[in-house]
């Protein structure tokens, strides 16, 4: 292996690592706020990427109807919960909060979709379709189980994953798609050619992380979400609604998932079920970050991406084996360090 190849692998690994970092962050956020291990994260990635790819061919993804349907079902549950105290204003607010984004996205998609639509608009439309799925799914599947065990929540997440994967097959079919790159530039830097898409991925990832960091450290809403993650009881005591925080976390996760899908759709052929393994690697990064620490998660994600691209070069059949086996010693170390604290619930 010469330097050029190494640098190429490095670039490839870090690009993937950036995506895993985003997904890992979303998983950490969702888990620490709601105790749900978000297996369906992978479907958000696949849906976002596939919708983006489909939009770039000028077609209208039927995902808009899934998005509308999920939001309607969640709205129905909201209204059922509020029954007896229906008032004009609160009713309007409930409808607007659930339906605004999916309806606007659906209308905009029907109006704007075409072979020559700007990639940026397509990307935004794809995001707008997937993001409402997060809060909708949270309302339907997880909010009623707020007191359930982590295991029950996990299995529920698997159920959601199966349902969404079936939906994915139904609306996108079994064939794979690839989207045009956001940037097709090639930058020569010494022995290395950097693709514009890699730069785009890094730039967007960095921007999203910066934005998240700003939200969590500067805005009261972001702090409230962080507070829920740090101490759920404490958050309830100051009046932060756990269900609202849960919906927000799911919304952010769905948006991040869709964004990751949009970013990788030009570099990987996506199938309806590709998301699962990508999500799983984000999960590896998240677990290595102990499901609570954001900086550790980002570091771990970089390591996962690197390990993956290096083994892909040497022994591509064993790529996933190596990625998932490498973590065992790390897990063991972490686990030994945590063993003492385990009993003090």
């Amino acid at each position: 292996m010469d330097l050029t190849i190494f640098l190429f692998l490095l670039q490839d690994g870090l690009t993937n690592g950036a995506i895993y970092a985003l997904l890992g962050l979303a998983l950490v956020l969702v888990f620490s706020v709601t105790r749900v291990i978000l297996i369906p994260q992978g479907e958000f990635v696949a849906f976002g990427g596939l919708a983006f790819a489909l939009l770039s061919t000028g077609k209208v993804p039927s995902l808009i109807y899934v998005s509308l349907g999920t939001s309607l079902a969640a709205l129905a549950l909201d209204l059922w919960h509020l029954r007896g105290s229906w008032q004009g204003a609160s009713l309007m607010r409930a409808v607007a909060w659930r339906m605004a984004l999916p309806v606007i996205t659906a209308l905009a998609t029907l109006a704007l979709a075409g072979p020559h639509t700007l990639l940026l608009i397509n990307a935004l439309l794809a995001l707008g379709m997937v993001a409402p799925l997060g809060p909708g799914i949270y309302r339907i599947a997880f909010e009623p189980l707020a007191e359930a065990s982590v295991l029950t929540l996990l299995i529920t997440a698997v159920g959601v994953h199966l349902a969404l994967e079936g939906l994915g097959l139904l609306i996108f079919g079994a064939e794979g798609f690839r989207a045009p790159p956001l940037s097709s530039a090639q930058i020569a830097a010494g022995p290395l050619t950097i693709s514009g898409q890699s730069v785009a991925i890094f730039a967007v990832t960095a921007l999203v992380m910066l934005a998240l960091w700003q939200v969590f450290s500067r805005t009261l809403t972001g702090k409230a979400l962080r507070a829920t993650a740090i101490n759920r009881t404490g958050a309830r005591l100051v009046g932060i609604s756990a269900t609202r925080a849960g919906a927000q976390a799911f919304g952010i996760a769905a948006a991040i998932g869709a964004l990751s899908g949009v970013l990788i759709a030009p570099v990987t052929t996506l199938y309806y079920d590709t998301g699962f393994i990508i999500g799983l690697k984000g999960f590896v990064a998240a677990i290595l970050g102990a499901l609570t620490s954001f900086p550790l998660t980002v570091l771990a994600a970089g390591a996962v991406g690197l390990a993956e691209s290096l083994t892909a070069f040497f022994a591509s059949d064993f790529k996933d084996i190596v990625v998932f086996s490498l973590i065992l010693p790390v897990l063991l170390l972490r686990s030994l360090r945590h063993a003492r604290a385990e009993d003090e619930e």
Binding site: A141, A148, I155, T156, G159, L162, L164, E165, G166
Partner: peptide, 18 residues
Amino acid sequence: PTQIEEICFGIILVALLQ
């Protein structure tokens, strides 16, 4: 049927756990 099956299966299991 195959696509619908997986969807129904997922939904029924989620509903059951509720």
